[in-house]
Computed example of a mutant assay.
Amino acid sequence: MSFKNKIQNWDDLRLFLAVAQEGGLVGAAATSGSSSPTLSRRMRHLEDTLDVQLFDRTSTGYDLTSHGRELLSRVLEMDGQSKSIQTWLSQLDHRPVVRVTAGFWTSVFLARHLRDISTGSTGPRIELLTGANFLNLSRREADIAVRNKVPDNQGITKKRIGRVSFAIYGSIEYCASHPDAFADHRYARCDWVVPSVAGGTGTSSFWLRQQIGGTAALICDSPQAVMEAAAAGVGLCVLPVFIGSSEPRLQQCSPPIESIEHTQWLVKHQDDGNLTHVRKVFRKIDSLFERHRESFH
């Protein structure tokens, strides 16, 4: 039998399932929340709509006809799919997402302090987008960005969040066996770990290549690999102070290098000012940098 375009009220099928499974109106009334007269009327309406008899009505209850059993098998499949969809919906996280883009080491800092910018199960979720090539806020590729240059895009709200300093670092063991690490001639007499051109993090990478030329002991394609190699004693490297000084395996070998320090800016699109979740995360990131301002120098 074909039901195409006949069923207008799918709730009738839910009630049909209750009557079929309970074998009568009384039991179905208890499980469906509908009264026996309502169930009787709705089953008659369903049969009229489908133009088939679904039940043999007896003194002991409602017995399914062959058409009724055929329909029941299909409704049971629908009920299973419905429960599957309900389970899927219950597992979805409906909280809004705030996309934050930043350079590699700033992203590491934000990840380490995620609890300070996220409000747990009730607040917005954070999507941390890492890369030296920042995503464009004007094209809405991100909601919030931390940048090391003053943004000149139209419609952008910016706030200065402090300076970032860089210094030379090496493992405690390497520095103990290479006292030149603490002297100005370190660039010619020590081993160096540098990022590749593609894996560099900006001005600091370019500056270091100018100091040592092509004499690096190791070239890595990610900033994390540079730090790990230096911590393992391969040689010296340049790191942001807020990263290098927080790594117990490393020792700072130089004062901050003034020529490569830069200012960080926290930016978002002006039109996002009415989005509570974006505004809230923006304020929390600003407060986070303010509390850790001394760590960046």
Rank of each mutant, 00 (worst) to 15 (best):
residue 205 S to W: 04
residue 60 T to H: 02
residue 4 K to G: 12
residue 141 E to S: 04
residue 29 A to P: 01
residue 272 D to P: 07
residue 46 L to N: 07
residue 289 F to A: 03
residue 286 D to T: 13
residue 117 I to N: 01
residue 209 R to M: 13
residue 131 G to I: 01
residue 50 L to A: 01
residue 40 S to F: 05
residue 57 R to V: 09
residue 14 R to S: 01
residue 37 P to V: 12
residue 229 A to K: 03
residue 141 E to V: 00
residue 178 H to D: 06
residue 230 A to N: 02
residue 111 A to H: 12
residue 44 R to P: 05
residue 200 G to L: 05
residue 65 T to A: 09
residue 224 Q to A: 14
residue 56 D to Q: 08
residue 268 K to N: 05
residue 249 R to K: 08
residue 107 S to C: 09
residue 78 M to L: 12
residue 20 A to Q: 07
residue 23 G to V: 00
residue 129 L to T: 00
residue 187 Y to G: 09
residue 225 A to H: 10
residue 262 H to C: 14
residue 45 H to K: 13
residue 90 S to R: 15
residue 251 Q to R: 10
residue 147 R to E: 04
residue 260 I to G: 04
residue 75 V to T: 05
residue 63 D to A: 10
residue 292 H to A: 07
residue 55 F to I: 00
residue 234 V to T: 00
residue 129 L to D: 06
residue 226 V to R: 05
residue 144 I to G: 04
residue 254 S to T: 09
residue 26 V to M: 11
residue 40 S to P: 07
residue 173 E to H: 14
residue 230 A to P: 01
residue 169 Y to D: 03
residue 108 V to H: 03
residue 181 A to L: 08
residue 138 S to K: 15
residue 206 F to K: 11
residue 203 T to A: 10
residue 29 A to S: 15
residue 169 Y to F: 15
residue 144 I to R: 05
residue 85 I to K: 13
residue 124 P to C: 13
residue 161 I to S: 06
residue 277 H to T: 11
residue 279 R to T: 15
residue 238 V to A: 05
residue 60 T to K: 12
residue 290 E to I: 11
residue 105 W to N: 04
residue 181 A to S: 15
residue 251 Q to E: 15
residue 20 A to V: 09
residue 132 A to D: 03
residue 63 D to S: 06
residue 171 S to Y: 00
residue 215 T to Q: 10
residue 115 R to M: 09
residue 17 L to M: 08
residue 48 D to H: 11
residue 6 K to P: 09
residue 263 T to K: 15
residue 122 T to I: 14
residue 141 E to G: 02
residue 47 E to V: 04
residue 214 G to L: 03
residue 25 L to N: 02
residue 67 H to P: 05
residue 123 G to N: 06
